[in-house]
């Protein structure tokens, strides 16, 4: 039996033990799995969900002035905005704000083009569904208060 034979066995055994130590320490640390939907997943800071309207802090109305810049900027034509002036107000407010999320590419041009920073990306990632319709016509106004409550009820 020469020396390298015994040495090979010893180093081999040591390397095996090193490997086993790695897997054992891994086993004893907590896993990376997030048990969604029982736990909420941590969404990265720059995560882009579907776009949503930003509400004014004081009255909860949408900040949007219904200028239509976002609709014009959208390369996929998936935003449709209509607006009117509520009684006594100086600026217009949206009466209709529909997003066709099925064709949105989440490019962010609408967010950048808005002059009053009235749209942002939401952080909603749980968007699976069985039908197309809820995504083809997402009514973004339903998440913000509106000065046109009566009119909207008519729609």
């Amino acid at each position: 039996m020469n020396r390298s034979y015994a040495k090979d066995i010893a180093t081999g055994l040591a390397s095996l033990l090193t490997g086993m130590k790695v897997t054992m320490t891994t086993m004893l640390t907590k896993g990376h799995t997030v048990e969604w939907p029982r736990e909420a997943a941590q969404v990265p800071l720059m995560f882009r969900g579907h776009i949503q309207l930003v509400a004014n802090k004081d009255n909860g109305f949408a900040k949007c002035i219904a200028c239509g810049a976002c609709a014009r900027a959208c390369p996929s034509n998936c935003i449709e905005v209509k607006g009117a002036k509520p009684e006594g107000a100086k600026k217009k407010s949206p009466t209709f704000f529909m997003l066709d999320f099925t064709t949105c590419s989440l490019c962010g041009l609408c967010v950048e083009s808005c002059p009053v920073v009235a749209i942002t990306f939401s952080r909603d990632y749980a968007l699976a569904g069985f039908e197309l319709q809820p995504f083809a016509g997402m009514d973004l106004l339903k998440d913000v208060a509106s000065p046109f409550v009566e009119e909207r009820n008519d729609i």
Binding site: T23, T26, M27, T29, G31, H32, T33, E35
Partner: peptide, 12 residues
């Protein structure tokens, strides 16, 4: 064991 050795949970 396989799960936990790979930072996963295995069947739950």
């Amino acid at each position: 064991v396989a799960g936990h050795m790979q930072y996963r949970l295995g069947p739950t």
